[in-house]
Design a protein around this nucleic acid. Structure first.
Lengths: 354, 354
DNA sequence: TTGTAGGCGTTATCAG
DNA sequence: CTGATAACGCCTACAA
């Protein structure tokens, strides 16, 4: 009677075409022990005689046994996988973030499931649901997401870390770049050098980083007693081309600015290109600065003054936070971190020669 | 007797702390049908009365039911996940590749598991093994991998597509960039413009792309009747800084080259920076060209002449190939593709003004 | 120290 | 058309 499942067709026959992967049962049979013992050895759970232990290890290796992770995660309810949700995968920025995340995850034996190219909320919500059950935790980086659509599309207890999101809900762990502070000190640097007409090339209005940087710029001007004039703020979208166009617009003004603050390095590069074509020299005629400190910034001519952000560190910190949340089963005090930035003065703002 | 498993503790009790996700059984119970019927409805497998079908759909939605993917993949032996193995995640290049892969994968309902930062073979082999059972197929991009260590660390029948790998084993699907051809036509362009002393900033000797580009450079020189001189080939590593240093070295030569071919755009940028600092003007004194056509190339001053590679297309093609291999259970003729490149002439080689 | 067997959530194969 | 139930591969009480 104990053989209550023995009536169907016998699946043990070797009729499969290719080699099937060895299962824990194969290893057990080969070693002349039960699957329980093998499992105990492989997971270091429970006591096993030393000799048996060695023998099983040896056999498992020889048979190239690797546990079936689907089965494993079915019983343990863990997947050893971290999900990463990204808005769009352009440029060097995201590649750095992923690198930071992946490295940290790997160190702790986790895998990284990436999902990118989400521009509207519907897409994000879809991916959020698709991640369900596939991951033990989530790093979400999305300007367009609010707390409501987040919580309503996520399993209750799934740990989440928000990266550069606008959700100011204190019940989520989050990490943000100090965009405001960075933009503030860069603008301050410019005013201290005597610039009173400082143009700003903005990022997309939808983008939180962009808005925060603009805010820092305005506040710094105000604090320096410089009027904030709308005409000096030109739209951009973080792409090189938009920086080019924006610079052209600024040059066309009656009172052309003496300095241009591009909200990121890519746009600064576009701007410099436009200035050069217009016969305006940098930094003599117009100073140009950026934000991010992408690797090539220092090799531009003139070398670009900018605000440094440690992007891969951003990913690393987020991952550590997430792993911690997982370990504590999400039953912990959530916290909001802000990653500092650093002013990098090179030649393009005209100060390095001083 | 059919109830051979009913003696253990009843796990149906709602003693769990948090809300557990609804299972197919919950839906079945709620709808007053069997799990089989629910499964049939959700997978469109087998016939179900239309009314029942609608009711089940409605209930499943209301209960926010999503199938447990671990269970699903345990029974179906499919994971709906594609693995991507990358050597190292620096720069814009990989971010583009991932984007191409992810987009294509998503369209077909697949997820992407990324594993990066592998520099030596041991690391790669480890990741290869770790991917086992988690993915339905693999995109591998690794200069350091040979066919042997590949096949010996991979399940026999797992579909694999090689990206820019050196494995010339015809039993693998592969896609490569036409590095040789691109470098050839760029060098040819230079010689046609009259350059006889063309310096080359090489990439790492370990990197296949780098070696192929060097090969194209040499062949083009030969075919143009220009002697290939070793002193004009300087080492680099694809990083901006190495381009800077290499250019310094080239400038120090007795007979300095009149043109410099950097094996990628990053190094070209570094080189231009070095030339400018040395008071050498580009392209008047020395022409400089690159390879890749990264987005900012056109915004440099002068705009960089380079060889265009459609990187995201590379990822897309690889993914399509992989999905195809999966659909055909890897029982198909493997094929090797070469992605063409395109010469992009801008200002830095001095030809645009002609 | 070791073995037995139930259960994780699905799918799929049978009978009805 | 629908229901019962054997796998899938693993972990883990509970027994021995």
């Amino acid at each position: 009677m104990r053989d209550c499942g023995g009536k169907g067709p016998d699946p043990r026959g070797g009729e499969r075409v290719g080699e099937m992967r060895a299962t824990i049962r194969d290893v057990a049979r080969e070693a002349g022990v039960s699957v329980a013992t093998v499992s105990r050895v492989l997971n270091d759970s429970g006591p096993v005689r030393e000799e048996t232990r060695r023998r099983i290890r040896e056999i498992a290796q020889r048979m190239r046994y690797t546990p079936n992770l689907a089965a494993q995660s079915l019983t343990t309810a863990r997947t050893s996988t971290l999900g990463v949700l990204l808005p769009d995968l352009f440029g060097e920025f995201y590649s750095e973030v992923i690198r930071g995340i992946d490295q940290t995850a790997q160190q702790s034996g986790y895998h990284v499931l990436v999902s990118s190219s989400h521009n509207d909320r519907a897409e994000i919500e879809g991916s959020l649901r698709a991640m369900r059950g596939r991951v033990d935790g989530l790093v979400v980086m999305s300007p367009d997401l609010d707390a409501v659509s987040l919580s309503s599309n996520l399993p209750e207890r799934l740990p989440v870390v928000l990266l550069n999101c606008e959700v100011d809900d204190l019940s989520y762990d989050s990490i943000n770049i100090d965009n405001y502070g960075g933009a503030y000190s860069m603008t301050e640097h410019l005013t201290r050098m005597g610039h009173r007409r400082v143009g700003l090339i903005k990022g997309s209005e939808r983008n939180l980083d962009a808005r925060e940087r603009a805010r820092g710029y305005r506040q710094a001007l105000e604090d320096a007693g410089v009027a904030v004039v709308a005409a000096y703020e030109v739209a951009g979208d973080f792409g090189d081309r938009s920086g080019y166009l924006a610079a052209e617009a600024l040059l066309a003004l009656d009172e052309r600015p003496t300095a241009i603050f591009a909200s990121n390095d890519s746009m600064a590069i576009g701007a410099i290109s436009a200035l050069r074509e217009a016969g305006v020299s940098v930094p003599e005629d117009v100073a140009v600065v950026g934000f991010d400190d992408i690797p090539i910034a220092r090799y531009l001519s003139p070398p670009l003054s900018t605000v440094r952000v440690s992007i891969s560190q951003l990913g690393e910190r987020a991952t550590r936070k997430l792993l911690d949340a997982i370990a504590r089963k999400n039953q912990h005090e959530k916290s909001q971190e802000v990653l500092p930035t650093e002013l990098v003065v090179r030649g393009s703002c005209g100060a390095a020669r001083a």
